[in-house]
């Protein structure tokens, strides 16, 4: 991934020590436009990094910039052009989502009429319909997360920080939220920094992933590099597994047998060849195909690799 002219954010030797704990330890990292994932276990320093990037917490040492603005001196400018969705609950229960998002738009400097229009638009985009006129106290977790996202987007920022947006959601809600984040990054054209302690879900939406642990950088690279190494396809047939394996091996593919599954290594130079070979082999041998799926190397593997 090539670094763009002004990175979305960049840190240089960023360190933050609290009286009892070091949250960030000489973190030097940068991210370009698009969707960037920030992964780390709880307490890895993700939220602290976001607060420093918002210019709300001064670092102990080192520096950071957001959209080319210095977090130490240009915090107000930064907060004018970014949005923030906190990890914790932040919605007063007795007012409606519409009123709340209009108010938050005004707090970002939008005039009242523009705030109303933007709030209606944004709530529609995050998928909140008639219920947006009801007090938020009666909302489900999924709806609450959508309102939190809407208030971060309502002033049309150039970059949003989303702190654990899938927290507390059921699998369906999680998928919806991830799809929404992907849309924000692509269709809306707003760069996203999204944190999660679940590695698997970020690889579905991110262009770039930063992994931190204990306040230190573990890895920062484009998502392609995370997943390219171990491209395999899993094949399951009703009978004739051995025949298929022999046929594929004869054709020059690397095949491994894992129980009822065959895993075929995808050729890194010519991925199409592997897929064609599997298709032709199954068809020629007249086998009943039960399963055919892509297997990718998982971001989890980062933690298994020794730290470079």
């Amino acid at each position: 991934m090539t670094a763009s002219a002004t990175p979305c954010f960049a840190t240089e030797g960023l360190t933050k020590r609290f009286p009892r704990v070091t949250a960030l330890d000489h973190l030097t990292v940068a991210a370009g436009t698009g969707v960037t994932g920030l992964v780390g276990a709880n307490g890895a320093g993700k939220s602290t990094l976001i607060k420093i990037l918002l210019g709300l917490v001064p670092p102990t040492s080192g520096s950071a910039s957001v959209l080319g603005l210095d977090t130490a001196t240009q915090g107000l400018e930064i907060r004018r052009t970014v949005g923030y969705m906190p990890e914790h609950d932040c919605l007063p229960p007795d007012i409606s989502a519409t009123e709340f998002v209009v108010h938050m738009a005004q707090m970002s400097g939008l005039p009242r009429t523009a705030a109303r229009e933007r709030a209606a638009d944004t709530l529609r985009h995050v998928g909140l319909d008639e219920e947006r006129y009801r007090p938020m106290g009666g909302y489900s977790t999924g709806m609450r997360q959508r309102v939190k996202l809407a208030q971060a987007l309502v002033h049309d920022p150039r970059l949003v920080f989303l702190d654990e947006p899938t927290n507390g959601l059921d699998p369906q809600g999680r998928d919806d939220m991830l799809a929404l984040i992907r849309r924000v990054g692509t269709e809306f054209g707003i760069s996203v920094l999204v944190t999660s302690h679940l590695l698997g879900e970020l690889e579905r939406v991110c262009d770039h992933v930063i992994v931190i642990d204990g306040g230190r950088l573990l890895r920062s690279s484009a998502i392609r590099e995370f997943t390219r190494a171990e491209q395999t396809i899993a094949v399951e047939v009703e009978e004739g597994q051995r025949q298929l394996a022999d046929r594929l091996t004869g054709g020059g593919e690397t095949v491994a047998v894992q129980g009822r599954l065959l895993t075929v290594q995808v050729s890194p130079d010519d991925p199409g060849r592997t897929y064609d070979a599997v298709r032709d082999a199954v068809s020629d041998l007249g086998l009943s195909l039960l399963r055919l799926e892509q297997r990718r190397g998982r971001i989890e593997d980062v933690f298994k690799e020794p730290v470079a």
Binding site: L54, L56, L76, E77, R79, R80, V82, G83, Y84, P86, H88, D89, C90, L91, P92, P93, D94, M104, M107, S108, G109, Q151, H155
Partner: peptide, 18 residues
């Protein structure tokens, strides 16, 4: 009280308000 109790304050402070 509500801004403290429901933790709305961080939303204000993430905007150009001090």
């Amino acid at each position: 009280a509500p801004d403290l109790r429901f933790r709305v304050l961080p939303l204000y402070l993430s905007r150009p308000l001090t």
